[in-house]
Simulated scan of single mutants.
Amino acid sequence: MLFTLPDHATLYRALLERDARFDGQAFVCVATTGIFCRLTCPARKPLAQNCTFHDTIGACIEAGFRPCKRCHPMQAAARAEPVIAKLLEALEADPGRRWYESDIVALGLDPSTARRAFKRHFGMTFLDMARQRRLREGFTALSEGAKVITAQHEASFDSPSAFRQAFAKLIGCAPGALSRDAALQASWIATPLGDMIAVSSARHLHLLEFLDRKALPAELTALRKSTPGGIGVGRLAPTVQAETELSAYFEGRSARFETPLAQGGSAFARAVWQALREIPAGETRSYSQIAEAIGQPSASRAVARANGANQIALMVPCHRVIGADGSLTGYGGGLWRKQRLIEIERAYAPQRGPKNAGLGISPGPA
């Protein structure tokens, strides 16, 4: 368990007050309706004697309750906060807009409240997210064959230098350095937990990382140097398959990933990554348990290093590895994101498929 539930009276009071502090950490099951909800659900409040509380979605499902259609407890908790929902809707309506704090005020929202809410749920501010979204528009334009100047305008940057600097800071190279004929092609994948970069060859996915991972520029540079022709921009078949599978994952439909993967690294690292893929969604392991699983029980620290060197997030689920005491440990995508992923996967525990489903790692580039 990641959280210890307070007593029934405390949780019922939180339900009545729609206390956001418990959102995603506790769920209420209502005996008279057979549904379970977030504590922030806007629906009419049930009587205390009809409520039971659980700390996981999986526990609610196992108890025979179905998810509420008003508060959608199966979705990420972030959108339950009105300030986040309102700003995300505004961003989707006009993705190319250049946002300022004055725009947030014009929507009737407090900038400091928005800043704290976005940092808590996404590890970045709304203005950071909006800037990242504009870069996505530029990246998409490049992947569709547009010239850099066109991509700059698509991303709503006033000057070519500002676009190049922002692009280089995020991706690790200037947009002009991305070859159009390279064997490896990079593309942008949007997810509810932040945008990701996918790099694929014609047959395999080579990299899948959240954009704010600090190691991403170095990882892309290493891939570019190790591949004749460097990295281009485009959407090859493995990236398309990865995006489809990620969409199903975040929508709560499937935790199976069958995109063919190409992973380098040592034989030891590949053994660790294989063991990670064998952890069922909804479960976690410690570093020592992974070390035992690969037949090297004294190699916990080496397992931790291999775990951190994984370049294919979610599909090789390094987020499922926690401390031996049950605490969250380091994660390149941010501990806030690791917690969200574990929460999301609790819903998959009762319905997971065969233990070895979705394996098939290629030993190297192709």
Results as ranks from 00 to 15, higher is better:
residue 7 D to C: 09
residue 8 H to Y: 05
residue 9 A to L: 03
residue 12 Y to R: 05
residue 13 R to L: 06
residue 21 R to P: 00
residue 27 F to P: 09
residue 29 C to E: 10
residue 32 T to H: 10
residue 34 G to T: 01
residue 35 I to E: 15
residue 51 C to L: 08
residue 51 C to K: 13
residue 54 H to Y: 13
residue 64 G to C: 02
residue 73 P to K: 01
residue 77 A to Y: 02
residue 81 E to R: 14
residue 84 I to R: 09
residue 88 L to A: 02
residue 89 E to P: 00
residue 90 A to L: 07
residue 91 L to A: 04
residue 100 Y to S: 10
residue 107 L to Y: 05
residue 113 T to H: 11
residue 121 H to V: 02
residue 125 T to I: 01
residue 131 R to T: 10
residue 132 Q to D: 13
residue 138 G to C: 04
residue 147 K to G: 10
residue 151 A to S: 10
residue 152 Q to R: 15
residue 154 E to D: 05
residue 155 A to S: 11
residue 156 S to R: 13
residue 157 F to Q: 03
residue 163 F to L: 09
residue 168 A to Y: 06
residue 171 I to M: 15
residue 180 R to I: 00
residue 186 A to V: 03
residue 187 S to E: 10
residue 190 A to S: 15
residue 193 L to F: 06
residue 193 L to G: 07
residue 196 M to C: 10
residue 206 H to W: 05
residue 208 L to H: 03
residue 212 D to H: 11
residue 214 K to E: 13
residue 215 A to R: 10
residue 216 L to V: 02
residue 217 P to D: 12
residue 217 P to Y: 14
residue 229 G to F: 07
residue 231 I to Q: 05
residue 235 R to A: 07
residue 236 L to I: 05
residue 239 T to A: 14
residue 247 S to K: 12
residue 258 E to I: 04
residue 259 T to Y: 02
residue 260 P to H: 03
residue 260 P to I: 02
residue 264 G to K: 01
residue 265 G to N: 08
residue 271 A to Y: 07
residue 272 V to N: 07
residue 275 A to T: 05
residue 282 G to D: 04
residue 283 E to K: 12
residue 300 S to T: 04
residue 301 R to L: 08
residue 302 A to C: 00
residue 303 V to L: 09
residue 306 A to V: 01
residue 312 I to S: 04
residue 313 A to T: 07
residue 321 V to F: 13
residue 328 L to F: 14
residue 332 G to N: 13
residue 341 L to Y: 03
residue 341 L to T: 12
residue 342 I to Q: 13
residue 344 I to F: 09
residue 344 I to K: 11
residue 347 A to N: 10
residue 348 Y to I: 05
residue 348 Y to R: 11
residue 351 Q to E: 12
residue 354 P to E: 13
residue 355 K to L: 15
residue 357 A to V: 11
residue 357 A to G: 12
residue 362 S to T: 11
residue 363 P to D: 08
